[in-house]
């Protein structure tokens, strides 16, 4: 008698090598696979490789082992930049996603005049190129000639210093919210639209109020999408680069070369010629992002089980 494990041997092997129809998915994935290998995997491998060395202007290249990584651990500039992002994210992400949820619910209710206009208008900033956005906001925040400054002067109160050291994180958070609010709203709106209408009918027949429908049916069904959006936002926040990079033009004395970790890595490669160290910084940042995302998924998953 054959043991139940045995049939897995030769025959199983053959069935694991895809042939004929089974090959189709791999063929379809191949273009992505190639691009992924060339533009993501290869640069990552190369970056990791150079992060193990140290190139200097005098003396050339030496093997550095983990020295670059150890240095990141005690690099105040890196951790201060990360600290900035923590402060930024803890305020910006809940505000943005909260608003996006609210707006999606309002839109979904379908009792709004010019609904399509609202949808488009809120989504539009997402399509505005970063450079244009920086010009717009640079003007709006302008401490002397911006609209707020002009208004303050007209009513004779001190102009708000929206580009000052204290206000800068909020000013950037405002730009990021403006940019991505519509994007997340559309995602949530699409998810709400996917909720089968008979659920609403059933709920109404059971005498649920509109609020109860939102609270007990729509929000729970939206939950996976919101969790996904939070993970995306954690990723986006920790990689913040464009907005501070562009606002630096308007506030060069406030945003320094290490304002966020990505800006720091950029400065390290362009001004410092410290490619090796920049690679190490990037990998540590990647690790921080992975940890933060994992931690969040862990916490939200545990809560759900409760």
């Amino acid at each position: 008698m054959r043991s139940p494990v045995e049939p897995k041997s030769a025959g199983a092997w053959r069935s694991q090598i895809p042939t004929g129809k089974a090959l189709v998915p791999y063929l379809l994935l191949a273009p992505f696979g190639c691009l992924f290998a060339v533009f993501i995997v290869a640069p990552l491998v190369y970056a990791f490789y150079i992060s193990l060395f140290r190139d200097t202007l005098v003396g050339g290249r030496q093997f550095a082992g983990a020295a670059n990584y150890l240095r990141v651990m005690s690099d105040d500039k890196f951790w201060a930049g990360l600290g900035n992002l923590f402060l930024f994210g803890i305020v910006q992400v809940p505000v943005m996603l909260g608003l996006a949820t609210l707006l999606a619910l309002v839109l979904d209710r379908g009792q709004l005049y010019g609904e399509a206009l609202f949808r488009l208008g809120l989504f539009l900033p997402y399509a505005v190129p970063g450079v244009i956005a920086a010009l717009i906001w640079g003007y709006v925040y302008g401490p002397v000639f911006g609209p707020f400054a002009q208004l303050a002067e007209a009513i004779d109160v001190p102009a708000p210093e929206l580009l000052s050291r204290e206000a800068m994180l909020f000013s950037i958070a405002n730009i990021v919210t403006w940019e991505f609010l519509g994007y997340y709203m559309i995602i949530f709106y699409a998810a709400l639209k996917a909720i089968p209408p008979h659920l609403l009918e059933a709920a109404l027949l059971d005498g649920a109020s509109r609020w109860q429908f939102v609270r007990y049916i729509q929000l729970p069904l939206l939950r996976p999408m919101i969790l996904l959006a939070i993970v995306f936002s954690i990723n986006g926040t920790l990689q913040l680069f464009n907005e501070p990079y562009l606002m630096r033009v308007h506030a060069p004395t406030v945003i320094d070369s290490s304002y966020t970790p990505n800006l720091y890595a950029y400065s390290l490669t362009t001004a410092n010629q410290q490619y090796n160290y920049a690679a190490a910084i990037s990998f540590v940042l990647g690790a921080v992002i992975a940890c933060a995302s994992y931690l969040f998924i862990l916490v939200s998953g545990r809560r759900r089980r409760r």
Binding site: G142, P143, V144, F145, H250, A251
Partner: peptide
């Protein structure tokens, strides 16, 4: 003032 080279500064020179 010490505000940096910005578009506001250009306007400031002009105004």
């Amino acid at each position: 003032e010490a505000r940096g080279i910005t578009t506001e500064w250009f306007t400031g020179l002009d105004q």
